[in-house]
Design a binder for these strands. Sequence first.
DNA 1: ACCCCGATCGTA
DNA 2: ACGATCGGGGTT
Length: 173
Amino acid sequence: MNIAKAKRLKRSFFNRPTLQVAEALLGKVVVFNGQYGIITETEAYFGDDPASHAAKGETPRTKLMFGEAGHAYVYLIYGMYYCLNFVTEKKGFPAAVLIRGVQLLDKTNVHLNGPGKLCRYFGITKEQNGVDIIESKDLYVLDIKKTCKFSVSPRIGIKVGLDKHWRFLAIES
DNA sequence: ACCCCGATCGTA
DNA sequence: ACGATCGGGGTT
């Protein structure tokens, strides 16, 4: 895996239908402060889906989901865990992809399975909320041009929108 | 000012 | 199965 030659994902990658982005992010590498994680699990939240934070309209917290694609949306959940999302689709349309799991590049035996574990290990907090991952020197995603086999399922930890199979899980090789 | 609850996780 | 822990957002 030639990380050194890998290029960052451009805004156009994120500025398209959220389900496409959620699927395409599998196998890409999220980078934060020199730490590398191969994305293994994602979930899509967009439009008027009742499970989305933005379902009831734009608020101070959710305004990022309505903003330009390619920004980080980080929120605190259950008073103790942060969750990392990447905003997708055109400005004005609320959408984001939740990063639920990564495999560490340099510790292949460590699998951070769960959005809270991922942020805790990487040290991602509210500080990263709103970061432009196309321009940031600290937080971005590398395109290693790998296509993944994957399965889909309902999203985790929600009580509504369970009819939508918008969770994408890379199949172990 | 108050109340409810959540895109989770570790322990039991 | 359940408790920890706290901010967002709606209601009084």
